[in-house]
Design a protein around this nucleic acid. Structure first.
Lengths: 224, 224
DNA sequence: GATGATTTGTGCGTATGTATG
DNA sequence: GCATACATACGCACAAATCAT
């Protein structure tokens, strides 16, 4: 028999890495907060070694910042950063969607359609976390279809840098519907196998996203 | 007086990180080679702690690979990887050059022109490292002009993954000249403030680059 | 600017897991 | 299966740098 290997616990440094990441995403650690190795180690009842390794990785990903005195703080995007990050994502994702329009199988297209239906349902339930989840899935599925595995890591990392603002992005009564409309346009272009149109639709869609996010951020005066 | 702070040695974990990276780039560690913490620590006469931290970061950058048994090897791109990496670079750099065509100042354009002149000189001297250096500078300058700081980090990381093949890429008698021709086309479009054309020229140029690289790699049978 | 308290940087021992014979 | 060698994961102690008083 081909016995599936039993589950093994991930090493501490990976678990810590993931946990810190999630805490930042969910606002337990807020942009600008300082983190201490020893304090984290104590919290998790482990030594500083795996904590340090996790921190190094998160610094490399840009989610933590180390200043010249080795102090670690949570990344706090300024307005310029958000714009630059979106610029990169638009470049990468518009390339992805063009590929997707060429390569998508019928079942992959069906999966996209299913995701749109789920989005609709969560909008009706007005469940914000759900809406965000399905919107994210839509973009992830496109990148998956593109068949370029490298794209996924890059987009994920960029996304993670502004993930903290994910709920802000669908604030406002009609945002959910507007985003869905954008996704339907993109979907239509993919189904029609029109890479150019798919790419353009995505660019427009993301530009709107960015514009909305900037207004909300500016309004809240959170970052400059 | 505003005394400039004196130089301080970087922590070991950063120095090791940089050193390993350079050794991979220059082929001292070859794709697929296995690395050992203890051995590295011994070589540098330090303990394993900073080595471990450096390794984590390099794994995150993709330059080192850790398998399910925690064995560390030097990243060995397969053909599909090279294609995917180029796909990402084309997406990012074509966006950069479009921005550059819109935003470049006269002095930045002059700098690009100077780089092209230097390239020409090194081609005449047939100095391959020099040619590569100026070609790289050309692309870096465009990204700098784009004004999107995030782009630089992404492209640098992608570039570092195939940096090992940098000299392969100008192998062949006319490659240096062909690349220069491509760069001149891109430059012309920037000078004419034509983002579309600049973007298209860059895409074509990079596609040729990739095609050439694949043939050479295939020919040498190094990767599949 | 000296002193004690924090915090990060580094060295090292040990436990655990894996390969080999 | 067992013994041995070796590699990595983790904990811990001390040194060096920084901060507060």
């Amino acid at each position: 028999m081909n016995q599936k290997p039993l589950e093994k616990a991930l090493p501490f440094y990976l678990q810590i890495q993931q946990t810190i990441k999630e805490r930042i995403w969910h606002g337990e650690y807020k942009p600008g907060d300082r983190l201490y190795e020893a304090q984290l180690a104590k919290q998790f009842s482990i030594s500083r070694s795996p904590v340090r390794e996790a921190i190094r990785t998160l610094i490399n990903e840009g989610l933590l910042i180390m200043d010249e005195k080795s102090q670690i703080t949570v990344y706090k995007p300024v307005l310029k950063d958000v714009k630059d990050i979106y610029g990169c994502r638009i470049a990468l994702e518009s390339a992805a969607v063009a590929l997707a329009a060429q390569r998508a199988t019928e079942s992959q297209i069906a999966e996209l359609e299913r995701i749109l239906a789920e989005t609709e349902t969560s909008i009706e339930k007005n469940d914000k976390e759900e809406i965000v989840k399905w919107n994210t899935k839509f973009h992830e599925q496109i990148i998956l279809i593109s068949g370029n595995v490298r794209l996924k890591k890059l987009v994920d990392e960029l996304h993670s840098l502004t993930y903290y603002y994910r709920l802000l992005n669908i604030e406002g009564n009609e945002r959910g519907r507007i985003i869905l409309k954008g996704h339907k346009d993109i979907f239509k272009a993919i189904k029609e196998r029109d890479p150019e149109k798919a790419s353009e639709s995505l660019k427009e869609h993301k530009q709107m996203d960015l514009k909305n996010l900037i207004e909300l951020i500016d309004g809240k005066g959170e970052i400059r």
